[in-house]
Design a protein around this nucleic acid. Structure first.
Lengths: 213, 213
DNA sequence: ACAGAAGCGGAGGTGTGTTCTCCGTATCTG
DNA sequence: CAGATACGGAGAACACACCTCCGCTTCTGT
């Protein structure tokens, strides 16, 4: 254990770094550099590297709790008496977390990123989501061939929509979520779509912004 | 016009370069370098740069016809007496082209890439697809709020699935296409999904391969 | 079959971007 | 106040992509 308690100023800088990293992960995703974090925190790069050997340590320290927030949402979904509402509530809630936090979205699909804590949180998430999916299937509210892994695939698809339309219309993903949910549901009539499609001009705009990262 | 006819060996090398570029675009997408193309063609880099000032010239020379193949598919869809079959036929057909050709998939969503010929082909594609969508909507076979721009968005989402599952299960995208089509259709009962979902092991495998490009 | 034109190869220069170290200087702590 | 601790940030080390240059080879027409 390297816990000799830091000097007061050093501890302050450590907090500044953590806050800066949290904000940058949220807004710019995991592709930031430790140099970026240092600048954003208002400290020198040396200080950043002295405290955190690399980005994965930061990811591990900051993203475990974000994944656990997803676990909590899934558990709340399990408590919903209606299996459909429970499933959809989780999907929508977790999606919102991911929309507000690019880093969260990215760790979920980046097996290498993070360390033990992130890995632990992920392994806590999987079984709960699985139960949520199984319960919905057994209740007959989703198609019988619906599978647990369809849930991350939905995130994968909508994550792309979010990235694509971030500037043009950040809510656009809700339109495609509704379409996907409709495709997953057992029977029933399609409800109205919650967001209008992009018109040509805004589609172009989104496309231009998309590929320039 | 710089058309003084090349020396025989130079013309041969030009063909080799074009073939190499076509294959690399197909298998690795647009992110290849002219150096890669030269190596794959078995010529020196100098030769590659002498013939093609940059990648966009190659893209322009090679991808126009691929986009026109999509235009042809859309036109064939328009000729189908059933507006739903016509629309779906196009979506499936064009998707298959994109699955077999990463470069094609990528130009469609990369406004900067290519030059006049690619831009021209794209502007030929848009109105035909638009008519296909409008016809389906007017016939009442898709939801009334279905929009032309939903089609590229479907490609965007499924393109991600294709990239994700390229090694684990290249056909997986068909599963999610079926779900999306079901979400877009007016009324009706869901047909069986064409491809089973990924099990945990293969999902992990796909994820590992995904982020390492 | 030869001379001049055309073309070739690929080592290496330039530019950009990330990661990380080093050490002279500043700041804390007891 | 002395010693320990920490700071800043220039720049080294590396990794790529892009592109040029020029000594040598190969074609072409007469």
């Amino acid at each position: 254990m390297t816990n000799k308690t830091l000097r007061r100023d050093a501890e302050l800088n450590r907090q500044r770094l953590l806050e800066a990293a949290a904000e940058l992960f949220r807004t710019r995703g995991l592709e930031i550099t430790l140099d970026d974090v240092a600048e954003h925190a208002g400290v020198g790069v040396g200080t950043a590297y002295r405290r955190f050997a690399n980005k994965d340590e930061l990811i591990d320290a900051l993203l475990e709790s974000r994944i656990d927030a997803m676990v909590a949402m899934a558990e709340r979904g399990l408590e919903d008496p209606d299996p459909w509402d429970g499933l959809v509530g989780y999907i929508v809630g977790a999606l919102e977390l991911q929309v507000r936090d690019r880093g969260l979205k990215e760790v979920l699909f980046a097996p290498g990123r993070g360390r033990k804590r992130v890995a632990g949180a992920k392994s806590r998430l999987a079984p709960v989501v699985s139960r949520l999916a199984a319960r919905a299937r057994e209740a007959g509210v989703v198609r019988q061939d619906f599978d647990t892994s369809d849930i991350p695939m939905i995130y994968l698809m909508l994550g792309t929509v979010v990235d694509f339309s971030r500037d043009a219309e950040p809510e656009l993903y809700q339109r495609y979520l509704a379409i996907l949910l409709e495709g997953i549901r057992a029977g029933g009539q399609p409800p109205e779509l919650p967001v209008p499609a992009l018109d040509i001009a805004r589609f172009q705009e989104a496309m231009a912004a998309y590929k320039s990262r």
